[in-house]
């Protein structure tokens, strides 16, 4: 047991994700909460009342997928996952700004509070803050990896 422990911990150190350590660990936590919340919410909406607001529910489902990808990519080590995380956070930022604006302009198309409508005001505006924090964090960890 004791002989294998140092090797095991060294391996863990090498394999640890830079983006999921330190403050990044909290970021992954919040992303995971949104992933679970958005997935279950859109699953319920699409399976029970899809015809009620098709566009809004499909956008919610898309948001759910983006949150899942961002959560996994931030939690995983490696440069490839880092790039996936940047892409996911950027998609999220564009999405929340586009859907947020669309929901303000045409509120009839968004009868229910979807996760990205009104810039996520139904979710304490976390949906619009989260991608900004995510991209900032990925920039910092990416720069540290380069230098």
């Amino acid at each position: 047991m004791d002989e294998t422990r140092p090797a095991g911990s060294a391996e863990r150190g090498r394999g640890a994700s830079r983006t999921a350590s330190g403050p990044g660990r909290i970021l992954v936590t919040v992303y995971a909460i949104f992933a679970v919340a958005a997935c279950s919410r859109s699953a319920v909406q699409i399976s029970t009342e899809f015809d009620h607001a098709r566009v809004a529910y499909l956008l919610s489902a898309f948001a759910a997928v983006v949150y899942v990808v961002a959560t996994v990519a931030l939690a995983r080590p490696g440069a490839a996952w880092q790039r996936v995380a940047v892409a996911a956070c950027a998609t999220e930022l564009v999405g929340v700004l586009a859907v947020g604006t669309a929901s303000v302009v045409d509120s009839a198309a968004f009868p229910d509070q979807a996760v990205w409508s009104n810039y996520g005001s139904g979710y304490l505006l976390i949906p619009v803050i989260l991608p900004v924090l995510g991209l900032t964090w990925l920039r910092r960890t990416g720069r540290r990896a380069g230098g």
Partner: peptide, 13 residues
């Protein structure tokens, strides 16, 4: 998930 980071950030999680 919090026990994966034995620092202040684990408490934050």
């Amino acid at each position: 998930w919090s026990l994966g980071d034995r620092s202040r950030w684990g408490s934050g999680v």
